[in-house]
Computed example of a mutant assay.
Amino acid sequence: MENKLHERLGQLLKQREEQVISWRRHLHQYPELSFQEEKTPAMIAEILRGYNLDQIRTGVGGRGVVGLLKGGKPGPTVAIRADFDALPIQDQKDVPYKSRVPGVMHACGHDAHTSGLLGLAGVLAEHRDEIPGNIAFVFQHAEEENPGGAIAMVEDGALDGVDAIFGAHLWSSCPVGHVWIAPGPIMANVDDFAIEIQGRGGHGAVPQETVDSIVIGSQIVANLQTIASRNISPIDSVVVTVGTFNAGDNNNVIADSCRMTGTVRSFSPEVRDRAEQRLKEIVEGTAAMLGGTAKVEYSRGYPAVVNTPAEAEMVRTAAIAVCGEQRVEWMTPTMGGEDFSYYLEKVPGAFVFIGAGNPEVGASYPHHHPRFDIDERAMLISAEVLGRSALLYMEQQK
Rank of each mutant, 00 (worst) to 15 (best):
M1G: 12
E7K: 09
E18G: 03
E18F: 15
H26C: 08
E32A: 05
Q36L: 15
Q36A: 12
P41K: 03
A42T: 01
I47E: 08
K73P: 11
I80G: 02
P88I: 14
I89A: 15
D94N: 14
S99G: 10
C108L: 07
C108M: 02
E130A: 05
I135S: 05
I135H: 12
A136E: 02
E145P: 03
I151A: 08
L159D: 00
I165P: 09
G167P: 03
L170F: 07
S173R: 07
H178T: 12
I197H: 01
V206Q: 12
Q208R: 08
Q208K: 15
T210N: 00
I220T: 02
N223C: 04
T226R: 07
T226S: 09
T226H: 04
R230D: 01
P234S: 03
I254E: 15
C258T: 14
V264Y: 09
P269S: 14
P269N: 04
V271F: 07
E276S: 11
N307V: 05
T308V: 09
A310D: 06
A318Y: 04
I320K: 09
A321D: 06
V322C: 15
C323V: 05
G324P: 13
Q326G: 14
E329V: 14
W330L: 14
G336Q: 12
V347N: 01
P348R: 06
G349Y: 00
F351S: 01
G355F: 00
N358F: 13
S364W: 11
D373P: 09
I374K: 05
A378Q: 02
S389K: 04
L392A: 07
